[in-house]
């Protein structure tokens, strides 16, 4: 394993809320984690858990009615939560790049992809037009697009979904950012292409020595890609730890439930153990543990007091009054 002692990003007690007519949505409510240089961290949880909002908060892309209420986003020691918009323009793309979920909509349909790539380099490098063009071609080849030079003049609609995501990855990597936030980068793609794209992303991140936050609702993906896992439920971290340990030996009942619902490729007929019930309405969360209505281990205490995120063993923590021990549920 690489040297992971140097911290690149430390998110500390981040709270991002949306003030809607229907009430305040505490989409992210006290999230903390840190990311070492070169590390890939999986950010997992069901839809609505606040994963994307964490990603957008880091890039300073939370729009009204949303707001970062409190907390720190320390990127290489600089608090991005307090950075000016001008400063963020220099950080976005150059230091931190983002890969979106749906490649069909994340590229501008009216600009040739060459121009959309060039824009990144014009913003963040001093290269002249020739140099930028050469870099774009090399990058396209790197992500597996053949006849790259001719493809520069093509428009997004002339590419398939998988190819578009390759272009998006190429754009994200162009300025050699130190951190990639990939928000469900394969969810919108054909199952057959998902593995290719994931491999490509991992190779790119490793080759460039970048760190990555891989947002996904799919634990199987994270198990394969990530060094560490952070599990999010209702805007809060419920479990955190090294990937292998969390997958093999989850402590939080929610994590255990997610793992139980990973489809087993060798056993297609077997019904999946989906977590019963649904994610509660984040605007009116009950007192106590947010997971208790769906939790097989819930007891009286769970309705009374919300569990804190506590260290279970060095490098691992979970927020549960009655954590799972020794692998079973």
């Amino acid at each position: 394993m690489k040297d992971m002692t140097e911290t690149l990003l430390r998110v500390d007690d981040l709270r991002t809320h949306f003030h809607t007519f229907a009430g305040t949505v505490k989409a992210v409510d006290g999230v903390s984690f840190s990311l070492a240089k070169g590390e890939i961290m999986g950010l997992v949880g069901e839809s609505g858990g606040g994963k994307s909002v964490v990603g957008f908060s880091i890039l300073g892309l939370i729009d009204s009615p949303g707001r970062i209420e409190s907390g720190q986003i320390l990127f290489d020691g600089e608090d991005l939560a307090k950075a000016s918009e001008d400063r963020m323009h220099k950080i976005r793309g150059k230091e931190i790049a983002m890969i979106f979920q749906d490649p069909m909509t994340s590229l501008n349909p009216l600009h040739p992809i060459g121009r959309q790539m060039d824009e990144m380099l014009r913003l963040h490098t001093d290269l002249d037009a020739r140099g930028r063009r050469a870099r774009c071609i090399r990058m396209l080849e790197d992500v597996g697009i053949s006849q790259a030079e001719d493809r520069l003049d093509s428009y997004p609609h002339q590419f398939s979904g998988g190819m578009r995501q390759r272009v998006v990855i190429a754009i994200a990597m162009l300025a050699e950012p130190r951190l990639i936030v990939a928000d469900e980068p394969t969810t919108a793609l054909d199952v057959t292409i998902q593995a290719q794209i994931l491999k490509l992303i991992r190779r790119q991140v490793r080759e460039h020595g970048a760190s990555m936050i891989l947002v996904t609702h799919d634990l199987a993906v994270v198990a394969e890609m990530a060094d560490h896992i952070t599990v999010l439920y209702c805007g809060k971290v419920v479990e955190r730890g090294p990937t292998r340990q969390v997958i093999d030996d989850p402590r939080h009942p929610y994590t255990a439930g997610l793992i139980a619902s990973i489809p087993d490729p060798s056993d297609r007929k077997h019904r999946l153990d989906q977590i019963p019930g649904a994610v509660p309405d984040i605007r009116k969360l009950p007192r106590g543990c947010n997971f208790r209505d769906r939790c097989p281990r819930a007891q009286a205490l769970c309705a009374e007091r919300e569990p804190d995120l506590e260290t279970q063993e060095p490098g691992r923590s979970a927020a549960c009054h009655f954590p799972v021990e020794g692998g079973g549920t």
């Binding site: 890039l59 892309l61 918009e85 963020m88 323009h89 220099k90 950080i91 976005r92 793309g93 150059k94 790049a97 983002m98 979106f100 749906d102 909509t105 994340s106 590229l107 501008n108 349909p109 009216l110 600009h111 824009e119 990144m120 913003l123 963040h124 998006v168 754009i171």
Partner: peptide, 26 residues
């Protein structure tokens, strides 16, 4: 509301250029 507007911002494009280069033409 479109993703490509947010993607452009995530690239570090200034607000003005996001609006006029990416938005208006669409």
């Amino acid at each position: 509301r479109q993703d490509y507007m947010k993607f452009a911002r995530a690239k570090g494009v200034s607000r003005r250029n996001v609006l006029y280069r990416h938005g208006l033409r669409n």
